Amino acid sequence: MLCAISIALGYLIGSILPAYFFGRLYNLDIRRIGMRYAGTVNVYHTLGVLPAIPTAMYDLLKGVLAIFISQRLTSNFICAQLSGLAAIAGHVLPFYLGFRGGQGVACATGIMLYYLVHYLTGGGLFPYELGFLFAIVAIFTYITRQGELIGMIVLPLLCYTLFLHAPHDPHNPFLVAVVAYIIAVGVYNTVRRGLVKITDETLKRHWWRVAARPGALTFVVIYLHRTQRMALQLIGYVAAFFILLDIVRFIHRRTSMFLRERIKLLFKRTEYRKFSSMTVFLVAGFITLLVFPKPIAVAAFTYLIFGDIFGKLFGLTFGRHKIRDKTLEGTLAYWGGALICAYVLYNTLHISPLLLG
């Protein structure tokens, strides 16, 4: 019974929305102007900094307040965490406003910071881990200048880093729930506000090639868990297929016309008279797995997969400074993606991050 009461109390604490009440002082419904939700950012943009400060403070702290009150009432760990989550629900779905409130990101962020303090006091982070996270934040802040996108990249890495130190901590599932919610709201805002606008027609037409690129990790997984020979056979067969297809395109005009007119999504216009980038990528991957020692081959192949994805997506979307046929932002994104790969490979496979160079 006490657990149910504390969860209900958490919901009520969360349902108190300073943003809405400050709006009423100005004879406004904050949910109908600006960004159309009762939250700190909307208060700042529509009412100014003075109302935004207390709004931000309460919204950040109310989830933690709900957890503390529940701990006092019940001394039940799970019940306390559920009370914190209930505060997020109360912020988003306040009963007295027709279940239409804010987005709950500030409340969720407050709970996440509370968990972060717990992890830091329990084991802490190594200096190189802090340096890595700050580097990723700095790189993608410069590139995107969009908090939602930065959160989508950094928050999963933060969770991964914390779980390395405390894989069995009881806070883990609740941290995942809170971070997943923040990311979900970020994705929703990114789509709804059109924060990511891809204007490159080639990428629009051939988006599936970027989406399929992570599938090349199959070759790496087979190399790691089976044999080099098996990995080489698989990538060799796939590469041979694309090489043969390219050669047929070059020497057989009807096939080239058919592929150009009927299957336009397969090849880019710039590839009609040369080997496709798919072929080049597969051949390069085959040579890498064949020639180099396993740690170097795995690292290089992984960097190539994800560095290229990051470079292409962020370069075409946020590129502002041209460097020949590339952009500074795309180049930084490539190295940011490679840095993320280096960090994960070091912690999972003990492959030295110095191979990034």
Results as ranks from 00 to 15, higher is better:
G23W: 00
H168M: 08
P353I: 03
F134H: 08
L158Q: 00
L232W: 05
K197E: 11
I251T: 13
S70W: 04
R209Q: 15
E129H: 05
H45W: 11
G330A: 09
T218S: 11
P94R: 08
G336S: 02
F99P: 05
K197D: 13
A212S: 15
P156N: 04
K294E: 15
A80H: 01
A300W: 08
H350P: 03
I309Q: 00
L149T: 13
G131D: 06
M278A: 15
F281S: 11
I13C: 06
T317V: 02
L234V: 05
I287V: 14
S15K: 07
H206Y: 02
I183L: 09
Y346G: 07
A56W: 10
G285M: 12
M57K: 07
I235M: 03
I251F: 15
F258L: 09
T218E: 03
A106P: 01
A300D: 01
L61R: 10
G84A: 09
Q81Y: 05
Y115C: 14
V178D: 03
D246I: 02
Y11K: 08
L245S: 14
V64T: 13
V291F: 07
G84K: 10
P214D: 00
I33L: 08
T144Y: 01
P170S: 06
L345G: 08
A342R: 04
P295R: 05
S83K: 00
N27Y: 08
L259K: 04
A138K: 05
I287L: 15
T141W: 11
Q81P: 07
L93F: 15
Q146C: 14
V248T: 11
K322S: 11
R192Q: 14
F314M: 00
L120M: 14
K274W: 06
H165V: 07
K312W: 10
L93R: 11
F77T: 01
V137E: 08
I182D: 01
G123L: 04
Q103G: 15
W335N: 06
L316A: 14
A8Y: 09
S277M: 11
R193D: 10
I16A: 13
V105K: 02
F250R: 08
G122C: 12
L12P: 03
Y11A: 08
F22I: 01
T288Y: 04
A300E: 04
G357A: 14
Y119P: 02
I287P: 06
L120C: 03
I305H: 01
T227P: 06
V238F: 10
E148I: 08
I251D: 07
T327V: 02
I5F: 14
L356I: 13
I251H: 15
I78L: 09
L259A: 03
T202D: 12
R31L: 06
G131F: 06
A106E: 01
T144I: 05
I340A: 00
S256P: 06
L175W: 02
T227S: 15
W207E: 10
L234N: 03
L289A: 05
A87V: 00
T270E: 15
L259I: 09
Y303H: 07
D308I: 05
G34V: 01
A212P: 00
Q233R: 08
F95Y: 13
K264M: 08
A106D: 01
A300M: 14
